[in-house]
Structure formats: structure tokens, C-alpha cells
Write a protein that binds this DNA or RNA. Structure first.
Lengths: 362, 362
DNA sequence: CCCTCATTTGGAAACGTTTCCACAGCCAGA
DNA sequence: TCTGGCTGTGGAAACGTTTCCAAATGAGGG
């Protein structure tokens, strides 16, 4: 069933009655060829159903037309969308994507980088646990493989497609302050392996400090806690004084709301919740999520554009951070202390009284 | 900065004072070598920081250790998770993934397959618009590249990692019937390019017919309609008689709920909503989504396992469909007509009276 | 001491491509 | 008629690896 015999350019040349050099020139439209041989070669290639072997080409040109993309996990929609964006942009330039994921494990980051460079990728787009500490990334760059980061804040000599996490978090602090919150928390998952999470916390702290609020309480949760509403509720109940919690991403923010309900807390009346990322689904919820909206796909595209420029031999400027927008949603409101204060009610633009039909005042 | 000079096995051989043949034998632990040369070669390789060129290897062995993965889009978490699963499984066997996405465009399916085969992938895992009509897929298989499908129902000679969409949809029909629904709808996105969607509709129709319900109304929406709650609400309002709507996936089901609220319809009192896929977030919602739960990551892993078996030269049995579970959630309830009928209340196992605190009967 | 055999080694071909270099043919200008 | 230049072509090397085959070495048995 399987005809194992691949047809190569020499088969084409043989059938066209010319040398492989000529066949190559015709098929690549490189070099001069007579109309006659052009026709014969093209005919032969079509008859035989010839297709170039990218391997042979790569070996000869030492360009694989392949880019390595490393992300923590495709199961996180934020990274998946970024990869999608990068992939689209690269495809337009004739590059393919070899992807790897680390499940947030630095050891696997290193292994993936080794494999990708062994596969002779022409460039790298990476989001990893600790880019600055990775000897593999350093080695790749030293051996001439251009690399750009995604999601990370830019660091020593490395370009990055990113949003300004700290600035966005400061904006969140401002919105919390505007709504009247003083005692806030930051809910973090994988704090130690995600510099995004850390940058957001730092920015949030700065913002809170600048606005005279109490320092936010850092609430770290494990993978398991985040997955179970009951467990998350238990953790949450250890911090009764908080009126607003900024979650390090949207999925966590949604889980947090569920946990709050478990404790009989209403959102946003008893607890305000703010997310990060702006995933699609957040805006389709009955009570749309208050969040910082980013565009991971655009981030992926920007990373790809930067890399393509470097592959062309250019030395692109460090890009400006990608824009984010604060999406008001309906999960940030005035804190309960302010509830009875009638000034507070008017100060709370995001509290949608009709978010749940059963609460409709009619 | 960039030392362009790659170190090859001949550099290692030179430094070790032996031939490349010996170096190759040592480094691959193939063939007999003396303890002495082994030591020298290993030493030299370490000193030089040698790493094999996968390209050179691929050219010589005509095995690229790369698998092509084609999906409609990574922006859809269902596919992203499947790719993640496949990738993990393949990685354990030493394979990497070259990924491509088609954005549901058959033309791009074809192009992607051409590129992937040109890159000499050892195998293919694909989800595409029309696998059976793809001459590229046929050509790849004819030339000896094993291929398996994901998500698709199995078809002529092709193995597929899949769930039984029709059976799952029949189960949904049964649950709707149990809850007392008669007039149902099926909300479909990309009906023409998704055989999953079509299979679900077919199964739902069969189920409805078998249970003596009215044939479900097929409501097709465009990408744009699905993205805008208002537009979706308009479409929805054209079908006032329906008491339950089965959406072809979870994201759509969540959007549908929002649209229902837009029309002043309460879920599930005025309209029941059932999804498909069982995405993570659905269970974290205040009103957990009623849906058919599947495991895309397991699907990806199964596809990879099948492909690996074929790559070993085995001829694996067509796999049993992967299991799905009906997750009751809280968005399927008794229809309004039955509301006043007290028999109906007991007949409705899926109506969780406590799903929303404000409805608690106490 | 010679023959055989096992062990280790090196040379070279092969994989599929691109591209450098050289050569043949041809035409125009002197 | 000769020279110079241009066009089209083919041979061959190179890219990095594996592996076949043959040769060299050494040991052991007769």
C-alpha cells in the first residue's frame, strides 16, 4: 500500500533529461534557464508529483524554516492563544512552529531548549520559568539563534512581547481605591514559577501603597486548592478582613467567585473580585468579570514579528509594551463597610444590581 | 557575539583522534568500541559541547522524529488541550510536534498537510474540515506516512481518537425528555465545517425522535453572532417556543445564557441550556453548566499512542470511543409549562433547587 | 611459526538539496 | 576572422550523519 520510494529532484531531472542543477534552478526560479528546459522540468515535476524535501534543503542551507516555541502549557488558553498568534504570523513568512511545553518545570524548559536547538530551529519564542537563568537559552543565543520572549518583562538583552504587568496591577489598585477598598488581597497560583504573577503582585503593592491602602495580603494557593471550590473556600476563609481580591488570572478569579459563594459571600457586595488576562469567556458570564484585558494572540504575533525581523538580520528596537484595558465588568463594587454609607452607593459604578434576575428590584 | 560555527561530529572525531565512524559509534552506543576510544570521544564531545544535528540524522535515516499535528485552531481550548496531551505523550517517545492550524479553512488544511509532509514528518495527527475528501491526506498515507484522526468519528480506514458524539447527544436528548422538555433546539456554530457539530445534531435528533419529542430546531449562528450577546439574543428571539437548547459546545452554551438573560429569560426556569465538551471553567461558574464532559487531553494522548504504535510498525485495533459523562450542572431544569405541575418537579432530577441561593426553598 | 577468528577501526557511500565553477555555444563588435 | 562577453548547462562539492565494507591488529590454536 505504501510506496516507500520518495521522488527526489534527481528523478525529476532524469525524466526531464537534464541535470539536477538545472532542475533545481527551474524549480526554485533561481539562476538562468531556457524556456525549453523550464517547460520540461516543470512538466516532469508535475507528472511525478514532486515535492521538495525540507530536510535536504535544511541540511544544505542550514536554515530549517522552523521556529521553536516554548510555553508552560497549551492547556492554559492564554498561552494557547499566543501560540496561535505566533504561528499565524510565522506561517505567512513561510516558517513552521515546533512546539514544546514545560508544565512550569525549569528542568523541562532546559530539556525542551536542548531538543529544539538540536532540531536546528532558526529562532526561538519562549515563555519559561526563569529565562535569565537558563544556560540553554544563553547557549542558543550565543550560537547565533535569535530568541524573543513572550509574556515576560524584558530583561538583559532580550526582547519581549509583553504587557506592563506592574502598570496594569497599579491600575487595578487605583480602581479598587476608587471603589472604596482598603483591605485587599492578591490570590496567586504558581507564584514562584511565574514572573508575571510576581510582577502583578509587585505592581499591586506599589499601587496600594501609593494610594494609602493597606498592603495587600498575598494568598498563595496550590494547583489542587485552585481546582476545588471547597478547598479554595477554606483558604479564603482564613482571610476574613478582605473586601477585594485581585486574582493573578481570570480562571482563578472565576474559581474564586465560586468559592466566595460557598462561604455565603456575595460578589461584589461582600467581596469584589478582579481578574487578569481578559479571557473570552469572562465577558459572557452573567456577571461579567472585572479584569485587565490583554490580547495574547497579539502578543504572539508581536513576538513572531520581532523574531522575523531578527531572522532578516535586523536589530529591532525593544517593543513598547502591548496595551491593556481595564474592563469594568460587574465583580468590582463598593465594600460592605461602605454599603450603608449612601455616598458609597453612588460611588460604585460597577455594581450591577440586576446581575442576577432573582435580585431584580422590578 | 554569535559564533556561527556549529561543532559537528567530525570536530569531535578530530579532537578525539579517531574517525567519525568511531565517534558516531561511541556517541550512539552502537557497534563495538574500545574502552579507550570511548573515553576519548566522550571527553571530546563534552569539551566541545557537542550536540547532534537532528537534520543530518533525519537526512541519513529518513526519520525526522517529528510528528505533524493539524487542528482548526489553538484558540479553542478543546483543541489546545488535545494538542497538549498529544505532545506530552509523543515527547515521552522522543518525538516533537510540528503544529499547524487551519482556522477551519479546507484550503489551509491542504496547504498545512503539504508543508508538513515536505518537512518529512514521521506521522500525522489531524482534525480537519473534511478528512475523507482530502487528497493531501490520502497522498501522505499512500506514501507511507501513518495518520490518525482526533475528534472525528472513525471513517474508512482511518483510526480516530474520539468520543461517540451521536451517543452523547442521544443522552442529552434523554435528559431533556426526563426533565420534561418537548420543544428543543440545537445551537450550532460552523455547522458546515464541523462534523462533530453535525454528529451531535444527528444524535440529538435521533434521541428526540426515539423519545417522542418534536424534532429539534437547528439554529445556526455565525462567528459574529456568537461573539455578540445582543446579536445572539436577536437570533434566539426568533425561536420563542423552545424550552431547552443544546449548544454544540460549552463556549457557545455560556454565550447563550448571556443572550437569554438579555431577553429576560431565566436559566433554567425559562430556558434550559446544555453544552458539550466539559471545559474546566464551566464547573466553576456560579450556576455550573450542564454539559457533556469529555477529556480532550486524553483524546490527544490516545491519538498519540495510536500513532506511536503505527510508527513501531504495529497495526493497532480501532480504539473504543473515549468515555463521556453527563455533568448535571444547574442549567437544565423543568420547562415552564411543567412548573405548576407538581409531578414535573419530582421528574426533574437535574433541577438543582439549591443551585442559586436565592431560590433555596429552606 | 602460520593460520584463523574476533575485535576494533577507518574510508567511503548515501541521504536530498543548493551553488560554485567551468565549459560550450553563440552573437556582436573590431 | 578573432576576441570578448553573455547565456545556458552540467559536474561536483558541501551540509552532518549513519552504516556497509574492508582492513588492521592481536590473540589463540595447531
Amino acid at each position: 500500500m505504501a510506496r516507500g520510494t520518495k521522488i527526489t529532484i534527481r528523478d525529476v531531472a532524469a525524466r526531464a533529461g537534464c541535470s539536477v542543477a538545472t532542475a533545481s534552478r527551474v524549480l526554485n526560479r533561481s539562476g538562468a534557464t531556457s524556456a525549453d528546459s523550464r517547460a520540461r522540468v516543470e512538466r516532469a515535476a508535475a507528472d511525478l508529483g514532486f515535492a521538495f524535501s525540507a530536510i535536504g534543503r535544511a541540511l544544505q542551507s542550514s536554515r530549517s524554516m522552523t521556529v521553536g516555541v516554548l510555553v508552560p502549557s497549551l492547556a492554559n488558553p492564554v498561552f494557547a492563544e499566543a501560540v496561535q498568534g505566533a504561528q499565524e504570523q510565522l506561517r505567512d513568512a513561510g516558517y513552521q512552529c515546533l512546539i514544546a511545553s514545560s508544565t512550569y518545570d525549569p528542568e523541562r524548559d532546559a530539556e525542551a531548549l536542548r531538543v529544539l536547538t538540536a532540531k536546528q530551529v532558526d529562532g526561538l519564542i519562549v515563555t519559561m520559568v526563569a529565562p535569565e537563568d537558563s544556560s540553554e537559552l544563553g547557549a542558543a543565543r550565543a550560537s547565533g539563534i535569535p530568541a524573543v520572549l513572550m509574556f515576560h518583562d524584558p530583561r538583559a538583552g532580550l526582547l519581549s512581547a509583553h504587557v506592563d504587568n506592574a502598570a496594569a496591577a497599579r491600575e487595578v489598585a487605583r480602581r479598587c481605591a476608587d471603589a472604596g477598598h482598603r483591605n485587599t488581597g492578591f490570590l496567586a497560583l504558581r507564584f514562584s514559577t511565574s514572573d508575571r504573577s510576581r510582577a502583578r503582585f509587585t505592581g499591586f503593592m506599589q499601587g496600594c501603597a501609593a494610594l494609602g491602602m493597606a498592603a495587600p495580603v498575598l494568598v498563595e494557593v496550590s494547583e489542587d486548592e485552585a481546582a476545588s471550590p471547597a478547598a479554595l473556600a477554606r483558604t479564603l476563609s482564613a482571610h476574613p478582613g478582605l473586601t477585594a481580591i485581585f486574582a493573578s488570572n481570570d480562571v482563578l478569579a472565576i474559581a474564586l467567585q465560586r468559592a466566595a459563594r460557598e462561604l455565603g459571600l456575595r460578589v461584589p457586595q461582600d467581596l469584589s473580585v478582579i481578574g487578569f488576562d481578559g479571557i473570552e469567556i469572562g465577558r459572557h458570564l452573567d456577571r461579567p468579570l472585572t479584569t485587565v484585558e490583554t490580547d495574547p494572540e497579539a502578543m504572539g504575533r508581536q513576538a513572531a514579528r520581532l523574531l522575523l525581523a531578527m531572522l532578516r538580520g535586523e536589530m529591532p528596537e525593544p517593543p513598547a509594551p502591548l496595551p491593556f484595558t481595564f474592563r469594568p465588568g460587574a465583580t468590582l463594587g463598593a465594600p460592605a463597610e461602605d454599603r450603608d454609607d449612601d455616598r458609597a452607593a453612588t460611588r460604585s459604578p460597577s455594581a450591577h444590581p440586576d446581575q442576577n434576575p432573582s435580585f431584580k428590584r422590578t
